[in-house]
Design a protein around this nucleic acid. Structure first.
Lengths: 162, 162
DNA sequence: CCTAGATAGTAGGAAGTCCAACTATCTGGC
DNA sequence: GCCAGATAGTTGGACTTCCTACTATCTAGG
């Protein structure tokens, strides 16, 4: 087996040489996943920088954009995005400063806060999506993105993601 | 098309409904990748917590473990792991405090610093690997991890990862 | 030889993540 | 009705990442 320049392939070879062959494929999958995520995230962030938002904030905006009334409680945002409540607080704080969302009191539960997307928030969300569709989503460099989605769905499903 | 509980499938449906069908698969791939990475990373970090290291520091240790002489310049570590030089400084600082690595001057280039793994560092790296192989890598919940690795290699290769 | 530009590493700051702890509010069993 | 426990959100702290700027050192062209 010739020495590959692919760092993942190199790591797998090291795994086999150390007697960890049973786990080598899983390690390679995890390492590939980490590196691919890093690459894709940086491409996405580069596009979003032009709109003064991050991927975390973009996800919040899109969730609100797709909601029926343009508003959701903090809690629901955290559940949908699978992040800690404090991360939602952080993202919403910054979106609110940028006037892309506003906090509104929940009508029937005074503990809860509704986050509502503003007209400017909708404009930014749509413009950012258009840019992402053109620059990233529309051309991932994958012959078969559906196969990747299927594999990752199996992984996510097994971990209780949905 | 029935409404799925999979958030990625829901997002794809929204994409199609908004007339972004061309980019829907790419968006689904990116979103799947982000969520899957989040899931896997948290499983890995949970295991490594028992060894008082993070995934970033584990990667540094394994790179040193696999090196011929157990030491590498900072620069090389950053290149192999594809992270910013300051991230390497951060990880090495903490590994050095934990006495898992030591900084040594480069013999011929006084700008450079060699990072050398200690015997304790080797012990931790091997024990952590054993735990990860058992708890994560050996059972990812994927019928075909090789297919995932292949798809991700295509993506990484297209982005110039190797 | 010697200076201009490249390179190695670090410091400080912004942003994201999580956790633990806290306040305020809601809810269910007695 | 009321209190214990659950829930919603925020604050402060730790950690990781990146960026910009800086120092120290190397290297190559004049």
């Amino acid at each position: 087996m010739p020495l590959s320049r692919d760092p993942v392939a190199q790591a797998r070879q090291h795994w086999v040489e150390h007697g960890w062959a049973d786990a080598a494929e899983g390690m390679a999958a995890v390492t590939s996943l980490m590196r691919a995520q890093q690459i894709v995230l940086s491409r996405v962030e580069a596009v979003l920088k032009g709109f003064d938002i991050t991927f975390a904030r973009y996800e919040v905006l899109m969730l609100l954009l797709f909601s029926r009334q343009g508003r959701l409680p903090m809690r629901v945002i955290g559940q949908r995005l699978q992040v800690h409540p404090t991360s939602v607080t952080n993202a919403v704080d910054r979106l609110e400063v940028a006037q892309l969302v506003v906090r509104k009191p929940h009508p029937s539960d005074r503990r809860a806060t509704l986050i509502e997307i503003t007209p400017e928030g909708r404009r930014v969300a749509l413009a950012a999506t258009s840019a992402l569709n053109d620059s990233v989503f529309g051309d991932l460099g994958l012959a078969d993105p559906v196969g990747l989605v299927d594999d990752l769905r199996e992984l996510r499903s097994g971990a209780g993601d949905f």
